[in-house]
Design a protein around this nucleic acid. Structure first.
Length: 427
DNA sequence: TCTGGGGTCCTAGGACCC
DNA sequence: TCTGGGGTCCTAGGACCC
């Protein structure tokens, strides 16, 4: 069995690249995409990065820069991004036997089986260059590729391919000598699994660069932190500890939480929002064929509202495992009436479905409340109608078509690829 | 005025049991 | 005066990821 080789394929500035696909006039220009509610910057073009626009910065803090530099701003358009993501991933999946879709814009590929087919050492590197060109040709989305004997090193190789444009977007890190060079250049917080807090603690121990972490005493790492960081260090040293995950697994919890476009004071407004979020979560639940046993509900004030920040929450056991929107909404609204307090301006609410099981794992109990007859059929029809007619076409009566608290999306592009009415026109 | 959302994993600490 | 030890389960909270 030969050593594994992982390729990490990552879409460059993915959301911005999606927006540019149908707006060629935006190439070479500073572009940013915002989070839900037009809150923060979550994707930036290279030109926007060069202007000093930071990841995660709130929109209102960069209004001057937007005006002065003519930065193009977009609300997030998840229908578009999800569709283009599927196209990229399909191209990748067709090229290799094993792929792990890690996020909307990244996949790990296991490519050791492709190496040495022509008996040359640089086969794989050339293969990656061609794959990158193929994705661009099929989808119009630019990607970067890192090759390495572990996932953590592949992530670092990918980082290097973006950090140094001269690499052409492909970095091959199979050679141990090159590994050592890059590890010495990479700050420890660039390592996959090392965030801000961990980096702080590591620096106190004199671990500044990725190379310091790779060569640190592993037992000490396990004792001072945990076994995950220990494995990360081994991965940096070239040993594969995190295998390719075959999935997608069933989710263990399903959440739908959202900030409101403006504060909600009345229980009726909160009830509308809770109904929507619960309906969304229930759709996801049925999408993975699970039943839910426990529902957690929270409402909270803004985290930036000062000292009187409040969070009210409740965890509810359902009378029987269910995926019926009506059951879940009924429970959630009962929960709401128990935690709602008048006179408070709520900024955000959320529903989290927990203790998910498969239908076969559940034995009905004739002495307990019984599920609604025909629930499966009703929900199936509802999901089908919403699939073909657009989300929210068929919904519970409590939900207005256009509620006052609805998410702010002032800069949204058309759903070019998923709505007939938004199909681009060629003149 | 305006600061995202959805996940997973790990640990610490308490309750409880034998 | 001297007051065990180990295992399991649960929960809350923290850290990380994109």
């Amino acid at each position: 069995m030969s050593k594994p080789v992982y390729a990490l394929v990552d879409c460059n500035n993915f959301y911005v690249s999606c927006e540019r696909l149908f707006r060629p006039d935006l190439r070479q220009r500073p572009v940013v995409v915002l989070s839900n509610n037009d809150g923060c910057v979550v994707s930036r073009s290279n030109e926007a990065k060069a202007l000093g626009i930071a990841m995660g910065v709130p929109l209102f803090q960069i209004q001057d820069a937007i005006r002065n530099h003519g930065i193009e701003v977009f609300s997030s358009n998840y229908a578009l991004y999800a569709d283009l993501s599927d196209r990229v991933m399909n191209t990748l999946a067709a090229a290799v036997p094993a792929i792990e879709r890690y996020s909307i814009d990244e996949s790990f590929l296991e490519v050791s089986c492709l190496s040495g087919t022509a008996g040359q050492e640089d086969d794989l590197q050339q293969w990656a260059v061609e794959l990158k060109a193929q994705v661009l040709q099929h989808t119009g989305i630019p990607v970067s590729i890192g090759l390495a004997p572990s996932k953590t090193l592949a992530k670092l190789a990918n980082w290097a391919s973006k950090r140094w444009p001269r690499t052409g977007g492909v970095v091959d890190l199979r050679d141990p000598v090159r590994q050592r060079k890059l590890l010495a250049l990479a700050p420890v917080e660039q390592v996959w699994g090392v965030g801000r807090r961990l980096a702080q603690r590591l620096r106190l121990m004199g671990i500044e660069q990725a190379s310091d972490l790779a060569s640190y005493d592993q037992r000490l790492l396990k004792r001072s932190f945990n076994s995950v960081l220990q494995r990360t260090a081994r991965e940096l040293a070239g040993e594969a500890c995190f295998p390719l995950e075959d999935g997608p697994e069933r989710k263990k919890i399903i959440a739908s939480t959202r900030s409101f476009s403006s504060r909600i004071y009345q229980q009726t407004g909160l009830a509308e929002a809770i109904t929507l979020y619960t309906s969304r979560a229930a759709e996801k639940l049925r999408g993975q064929q699970s039943l839910c046993q426990v529902l957690h509900l929270f409402i909270r004030t803004g985290v930036y509202d000062g000292s009187q920040a409040q969070r009210h929450q409740i965890t509810l056991e359902l009378p029987y495992p269910t995926a019926d929107t009506r059951d879940l909404v009924q429970q959630a609204l009962q929960g709401l009436s128990r935690i709602y307090q008048p006179g408070i301006g709520y900024a955000k609410a959320g529903v989290i479905l927990m203790e998910l099981i498969e239908p076969g794992q559940y034995t009905p109990d004739m002495f307990k409340p019984q599920p609604r007859p025909g629930s499966d059929q009703v929900m199936t029809v509802m999901d089908q109608i919403n699939h073909y007619q657009g989300r929210g076409s068929l919904r519970l009566g409590r939900l207005p078509a256009n509620p006052a608290w609805r998410m702010r999306q002032a800069f949204k592009s058309p759903a070019y690829t998923t709505q007939w009415k938004d199909l681009p026109r060629v003149r």
